[in-house]
Nucleic acid binder design. Sequence first.
DNA 1: ATCGAACATCTCGATGAACGAGATAATAAG
DNA 2: CTTATTATCTCGTTCATCGAGATGTTCGAT
Lengths: 154, 154
Amino acid sequence: MPTPPGTDPAPEMEIVHLLRATAVELGLHSARFAHRNGMHATDVRALIALMDARRAGEETTAGRLGAVLGLNSAGTTALVDRLERAGHVRRVRGERDRRQVVIEVEDRAVDLGQAFFGPLIERSVELLRGYDERQLAAIRGFLGGVREAAAGQG
Amino acid sequence: MPTPPGTDPAPEMEIVHLLRATAVELGLHSARFAHRNGMHATDVRALIALMDARRAGEETTAGRLGAVLGLNSAGTTALVDRLERAGHVRRVRGERDRRQVVIEVEDRAVDLGQAFFGPLIERSVELLRGYDERQLAAIRGFLGGVREAAAGQG
DNA sequence: ATCGAACATCTCGATGAACGAGATAATAAG
DNA sequence: CTTATTATCTCGTTCATCGAGATGTTCGAT
């Protein structure tokens, strides 16, 4: 995201770059977690998606996981193989539809994620506690707006 | 980044998840740009790094680029090969030190990035213009704090 | 001057994530 | 019961990245 050429840099650009830098840094943080546990970026994304779904009380099948991550069936199988081999998830045949393979996260993986991402989350919450409601609304509004713009375009 | 188990979800968690979602969405936005132009995530990161450096008035050598992206020399060579083959950059032997290969971005690549990321940047600036100085300070403080925390830990 | 160590980049072969095509198995529709 | 559809897996290939080492360049010490 470079500065538009022929434009005097608006003071708001500083924050735009800061957001980008923060996004990159969060990505690197995940990458460190992945590397440290012998995983790849996709594996971490998969675990996060699985935990999100679990928190929402939803089962995740192999196919659904692959769709969320943008993998085809072959890639999804390989991914689940890796995660299962590493002991982070287990395959369970679907009860209702026995063609399905439901992916369940092992507690061990949840703890691992907690240990690594917990401090960052706590620090974030701590930062947010320092702002009043008007300021929190601005943060929410800006992040939500950018997310929407990024999702909508292209 | 799941909610800590055994903890009543703090209201701040909503914003933490929003930030994560935004970071993911920005990553996907880059991925769409990459895919649409027959590139990979690393290629886009490389172009962004190159343009950032150029805006800062710095030359980028092959080795420096690889170091920024966390690639070894073989990977860096392959990366620059891809970018050069696609016409996004050109190799120029270093003047001062002829062992070096300075990577220069082609104008074509800059325009391409402008066209794709420009609208998102403009929308972000537009959003920011809607906030007062206290609110902007909160956004800056939160993003900067999270970035620092993500960079520092691990 | 010249030799050798340090450096920047490239080449080669190997590893592994992800893909396309197609096989297998379970369910649903006619 | 047969056929179509869906869910997952297998096989062979592609391509980014890696480790090791080759090649060319600079610089300090002699």
